[in-house]
Design a protein around this nucleic acid. Structure first.
Lengths: 204, 204
DNA sequence: GTCTATAACCTGATAGAC
DNA sequence: GTCTATCAGGTTATAGAC
């Protein structure tokens, strides 16, 4: 109980708090979360939270930064890889995103909610437009199909991949699908979405 | 200033509060909203809010009910109309939804956020699954393409229609698109999405 | 580093005058 | 019906003992 080095107890207090913060913030969002919830979840007391992280806000920023990176860190490298075709990029996005979100289904709603409520607290200046405009994806698309709008296309891919996870609470609540069924449906999409875009990219 | 009946001043205090509640709740969500914000927005004082509506919660439920109905009230009648084809249904959903959301872009993020944070406070039991399963849309799809999963298809349609509005804050923040450009893009989708689904429904 | 206790502030709701 | 004033309770953050 004291200073034995059992693997589970190696986790530092700081990390325990951070992990608890991830859990609670992800579930309730910034405003609905009380620092006491996090302290309880971490199994420590409230004062310690302020000792390690100066404030609720600082702790939140840490978590948000992580999640933001997880959310966008998957897509940008794929879009920017010069060595893959457009078709392959779509395939990779569908596959990797759905895998990520299956393990982390609350990620999209968390990020989108917090952006809405507190655009200021957000990781500002992500320059989504620039990053996209200068990407290999856009370059390749422009060469192949100058008639297609890259933002439209990317919004469509993301919509098909991400939206089901946003609807998930609503679908699960009504008992229409348990986790297993939902995940199976998402796995189908991994095949489905690339095929769809193939036919669009080669249409007419 | 007293009891003149100028049109703008006919608005009852009750309605002024309700309207303010719509604005503030939609922008910040339940938890981040303070009743004082609503009172200020309505130009009345805090006590009056509790006089007309018993509590913050009651007022919120009112607003949520409205918005929920607006969000789902468009799609259900379309899905259930026996006199329209599948293609026409997709066309109507794309057209009417995008029109609705263009006027009310915060609607989806509001509803989805609040469902997450407070599944309990939500308009429970919407039985999305039942309503869908018994819809004309599902019946027609099953006859025409028994190989296709109706939930998948509906999630896809909604994803293509709704997701851009969820990304909107992120796109607008980065200056990639102002309102006019964004709306133009959404209008394109009114044509685009039905064509897409036509080719899917008639594929292979 | 970790705790208890509490300060300082905020928020929802109500009492009571007009 | 509408206001001011205030209560009661909750929340973040800190002081200070160990």
């Amino acid at each position: 109980m004291a200073k034995k080095i059992k693997p589970e107890e190696q986790i530092s207090t700081e990390e325990k708090i951070k992990e608890a913060a991830r859990t609670v913030f992800m579930k309730k969002g910034f405003s609905a979360t009380r620092t006491r919830d996090i302290a309880d979840e971490a199994g420590i007391n409230l004062a310690l939270l302020n000792y390690y992280f100066r404030s609720k806000e600082k702790l939140f920023e840490l978590v948000m930064m992580e999640k933001f990176q997880a959310f966008f860190g998957v897509i940008f490298p794929i879009l920017n890889d010069p060595s893959t075709t457009l078709e392959r990029k779509v395939e990779l996005i569908a596959d990797q995103y759905i895998t990520l979100l299956t393990e982390n289904p609350d990620l999209p709603i968390f990020i989108l909610s917090e952006i809405r409520t507190n655009a200021d607290r957000m990781v500002a200046s992500v320059r989504l437009d620039k990053i996209l405009a200068e990407s290999q994806f856009v370059k390749q698309l422009h060469e192949r199909r100058p008639d297609m709008h890259s933002v439209q296309l990317i919004m469509s891919i993301l919509g098909l991949v991400v939206f089901p996870f946003l609807m998930r609470p609503l679908l699960m609540q009504t008992g229409n699908a348990d986790t297993k069924i939902f995940n199976a449906m998402m796995n189908e999409r991994k095949q489905w979405i690339p095929k769809w875009f193939d036919s669009i990219l080669n249409a007419k």
